[in-house]
Every structure is written in C-alpha cells, then in structure tokens.
Design a binder for these strands. Structure first.
Lengths: 205, 205
DNA sequence: TGTACATCAGTGAACGCGCGTTCACTGATGTAC
DNA sequence: TGTACATCAGTGAACGCGCGTTCACTGATGTAC
C-alpha cells in the first residue's frame, strides 16, 4: 500500500469489520451485549483475537459503531415513514415499518431495546439522541396535520403525543419480539390500536 | 444445629443473603447484570466466593430471587396504588408511587428496566408476568370508574388504555432515572401529563 | 523497467489475571439419650 | 447433667480455563525514483 490501500484491500477490511459487527449482534442476542468478550466476537467472525484491534480499540467502541451504523438507519427509516404522509395514516405507516424492522434485523432491534436501558451511559445517551429524532418527526407530522393543534398550545400537545407514541412503539417492539410469531396479525392490530390511542390523546379517534 | 437452625442462625444467614442481593443490585447498576460475576458479588458482600453457593446455585438463581423478592414488591405497590381510588386520581397516584420507588430503590428500578429486555428469557418472562399484574390493576380501575366503558366494548378499551399507560410509566421510569435530579418537578408534571394522555384515550381529558 | 522501501490487515506465541467450581475442613450450635 | 453426634454457614487452597493485551512477525500491495 504505502500511502493508500487499494480498493480491494479496503473492501476486504470492510467485510471483516462487518462480520465483527454481525457476530456481536448475533451473540449479543443470545448472551447479552454487556457480557460479550472480544475473543468471543473475534472467534465468531473467524479472525484471530489480535486482529480485532485492527478495527476497534475495545468492545465499547464496537458498541458505539453498532449504534451509529446499524441502529441509526433503522430509527431514521421509522422517522422517514412518520413524515411521509399526514397524521391520519401515520399509525399504520409506523407499525408496518416496525414489523419490517423486526423481520429484517431482529438483532438490531433487540440491541436498541437492551442498550437503551443498559449499563453503558454513552450508549444510552447515543440511543436516546437517535430516538429523539423519531419523536421530533412524529410531533412534526402531528403539528403539520393540525390534528393536535385544535386545542391548547399545539407544539406542547404534539410533543406530548409524540412522547407517548414513542413509548408505545418501543413497547410494541418488545411485545412482538418476545411474542408468538404465529400471531403477527393480532399483534399488528393491537399495536395499531395502541398507537392510535397514543396519538389521539383527548381528541376524537 | 442438627435438625433445625436457631433463630439467630437463620437471621444471620438471611443477612448474608440480603447483602448478596444488595451487592448484585449495586454492582449491576454500574456494570450491567449480565456481566456480573459470582466472585465479584461475593467480594462486594464480604464473603468468600465459595460461600456464595450456600445461598444460590449460580448467578441466574440470584437474578430470579431479585425478581421475586425485590422487583415484585415494587410493582405490587404500584398496582395497589392503582386500585386505591377511582380513575380520576390514578394518574397522580401512580406517578407519585413511581417517584417514591425511584427515590427509595433506584437499583431495583434499573434492574427491572434492564432485565425486562435483557438476554435471559426466564427473567424477561418473570418480569412480564409481574407487569401484567399492574396492567390488570390499571384496567380494573378504569373499568370500575366507567370512564372507558362509555364507548365501545369496555373491557377491550380499558385493556388498551392500561397497555399504553404501562408503556408510558416504564418510559417515565427511564427518563427520570437518566434525567437531571434537579428537574424532578418538571419531570413529574410531564409524566402526569403523558399518563393522563395515555389513560384518556379518545375521551375528553 | 527494476529495485528499495512503506503501509497495514492479519497472525501466533506468550503473559498475567480473574473466573467458576471442587474439596476437605472449621466452628458454632443444635438434638439424643 | 454430661457426652456423643449431626447440621450447616462460612472458609482457603487448588484446579483448569478463557480472557484482554503485548509483541514481533508475515505477506500482499502500494509508492518513489
């Protein structure tokens, strides 16, 4: 190489890095992320333990990468869906996006839910910041559709509704992840109803 | 002893057991419960590592004891408060009980929040069962006060409101635990508002 | 073009350390008679 | 009452093991000239 690595080398390194992140997610779902070891992750990624250091200084740095590179896109997708229409259809748009996220990347969702209340404060803060983006998106759509502004101070009511809706969404993630996969239809209906309830607040549903 | 231990001996053993549970909670808040070691907990409880086995077979059994002996009473207290009056005052009764729980036993609350979405399925299930009691208590009060029964099928609406309210309560625990202790007053008002929003659903607030 | 050198992902040996678990033991305190 | 025995919480030594980290190295591939 010398000053720069070739594209092939950079791709190769990126593949190894990706396999480390994937391995950490897969193992974390089983044993918990906090108890994950560097050697354990390297082994699952099929590299020598010492090679781990070519990508991350320690497991904490890997956790931070998971937040930024894996969790963030999932939450941003939800936020995009929230603002991709008016408030009346937001319930179903969000719930559908939740189900897609759980189907595609259940480990990422589990990581989000776990570390949001986990032991590492930096991860908790990072995830809280990401979730704030989603809350803002929900509040924006509510305000824009004027559905919450009909009474009282609009912004405050929209924020309140968004906070409650976010709590319901995260609760829904948990229930569906731990629930029976056979009963997705019922789970979906319940979550749509709960989210509608959360978004409606004191207005007519 | 022989066939039975003296009351003093049983008290002594109970004290040691309590110090193990306390140590696990205190350490768990800092490093996460999943990564907690038997030796680490025994050390913090000021007993020899081998003495741990006089009380628990392993850390998993200790975690189960935490659910049943520490978390359960906190949730039962919330459930008791929920049914200790009519639906109109339930918001403030529950929020006050949440603040008391956080002040008295922040480690227990943190344990509840963490393990509810943690890696050990048995703990998740145990905590879900405890929380179900609280949801039922909330739904019962709503139904009894007839505030949710005014429209549509009463039981279903009460259950939905209780589910949303529970999500808001748990979210409130998280926000207050991670929030600035100086701003308790504001946090309390926000949580009361959010819970009111959650309980109100589509009826007038 | 050839040759010398730089970069760097990945490696294997080695280290000291804390872990979970076993084992035989101690000492206090009970019961049996 | 005295004596033999049982129970059991707590102990310290010892074990094998996997951990995180360091180190000097390899080999592929780039640049400089």
């Amino acid at each position: 190489m010398a000053l720069r690595a070739s594209p092939e080398q950079r791709e190769e390194k990126e593949r190894t890095r990706k396999s480390l992140l994937d391995a950490a997610l897969a193992l974390g779902v089983r044993h918990g992320f906090a108890s994950l070891g560097l050697r354990e992750v390297a082994r699952a990624a099929a590299i020598a333990p010492t090679s781990f250091y070519r990508h991350f200084a320690d497991m904490g740095e890997l956790g931070f990468a998971l937040v930024h590179e894996r969790v963030r896109p999932v939450i941003r997708e939800l936020a995009t869906r929230a603002v991709a229409g008016d408030a009346s259809g937001m319930r179903t748009r969000l719930v559908d996006a939740v189900l897609v996220a759980i189907d595609r990347e259940p480990e990422v969702v589990r990581f989000l839910l776990s570390e949001r209340v986990g032991a590492f404060e930096r991860l908790r803060q990072g995830l809280a910041e990401e979730l704030e983006v989603l809350a803002t998106a929900i509040a924006t759509t509510l305000l824009a559709s004027g559905q919450s502004a009909s009474r009282g101070p609009g912004q405050a009511r929209a924020n309140l509704a968004a906070q409650v809706a976010l709590a319901v969404l995260l609760d829904g993630f948990t229930r569906i992840l731990d629930g029976d996969p056979e009963r997705r239809g019922e789970q979906r209906r319940t979550l749509v109803a709960a989210l509608g309830w959360a978004l409606a607040g004191s207005r007519k549903e």
